[in-house]
């Protein structure tokens, strides 16, 4: 276990070195958040119809999405792992007396956390100071915030478990495009990064509730803005946790199966 934690720390500290990339990331995220919000503001000002979420909650939701984008997005691709597989250097990894799944898991977790650590705080500070209605608002009470934190923590573990699946699938497909890309797009849409799940048409909302994607970020963010009350939030966290276990088990099974037939091409 100690080895994995050290590996995690190593990746985390390495990740913190890319500060100019983080700065560029923050400004991009800020701009995109602003564009989304202006569209929503225009829609809400046009009135009419029943809205699933008040405007101020929706805006806070958008800012949360942008602030934690580095943590929750599915598009994250680790070129290092893919190169490892393509170049055949994976044989070195396999010869180490450690569980490869755990290694990869902690590696990705460390990178994600490092990326988000540098980004979320400045963005949230700036957006707090924006004039109404564009500002980011504080949670209703401490209890809500606490439930949000727990759910965010499980969500982080969940999204990492999912992204570990991509290089594992690639062990057989040898191509990060293709199947993986398709999964990533679907996952991104259904995790509420583009538009909150509450705005989905009914059918898709139902489908989405049987899939793990909305438990990555949609659940914690909706808890934060008060769109889900704390009791239902706690139920949600239980489901989140079940999905986490399921996906880790799937990942391990796939990994063991794929490693048996992995063929190292030169190297």
């Amino acid at each position: 276990m100690k080895a994995y934690i050290t590996y995690f720390k190593l990746k985390f500290i390495t990740g913190l070195q890319y500060r100019s990339a983080a700065l560029a990331g923050i400004s991009t995220q800020f701009f995109f958040g602003f564009v989304y919000i202006m569209v929503y503001v225009a829609f809400y000002e046009s009135g009419s119809g029943s809205v699933p979420m008040p405007l101020s909650s929706l805006i806070t939701y958008v800012w949360l999405n942008q602030a934690f984008f580095a943590l929750i997005n599915q598009f994250y691709k680790d070129p290092e792992l893919f190169n490892l597989i393509r170049s055949g250097n994976i044989s070195y990894e396999l010869s180490r007396p450690k569980n490869l799944y755990c290694m990869w898991y902690f590696k990705l977790l460390g990178q994600r956390l490092a990326n988000v650590t540098m980004r979320f705080f400045p963005l949230l500070i700036i957006t707090c100071l924006l004039p109404e209605p564009y500002n980011f608002s504080m949670p209703g009470n401490m209890l809500i915030f606490l439930v949000f934190l727990i759910s965010m923590f499980v969500g982080t573990l969940l999204v990492t478990a999912m992204t570990v699946l991509y290089p594992i699938v690639m062990l057989t497909t040898m191509n990060e495009k293709g199947i993986v890309n398709i999964i990533v797009v679907v996952a991104d849409l259904l995790s509420g990064v583009g538009i909150p799940i509450v705005f989905f048409p009914k059918l898709l909302k139902t489908i989405s509730s049987f899939l793990p994607f909305q438990y990555i970020s949609d659940l914690p963010f909706r808890i934060y803005v008060g769109n889900i009350n704390t009791i239902n939030g706690l139920y949600g966290i239980i489901i989140q946790f079940i999905w986490l276990v399921i996906i880790i088990v799937i990942g391990n099974l796939l990994m063991n199966k794929n490693i048996k037939r992995v063929s190292v091409q030169g190297g």
Partner: peptide, 15 residues
């Protein structure tokens, strides 16, 4: 999809 989803809740955007 985002546009269509928004218009399922709102009838227009600034006319």
């Amino acid at each position: 999809f985002i546009i269509i989803a928004m218009f399922s809740k709102f009838s227009n955007i600034k006319g």
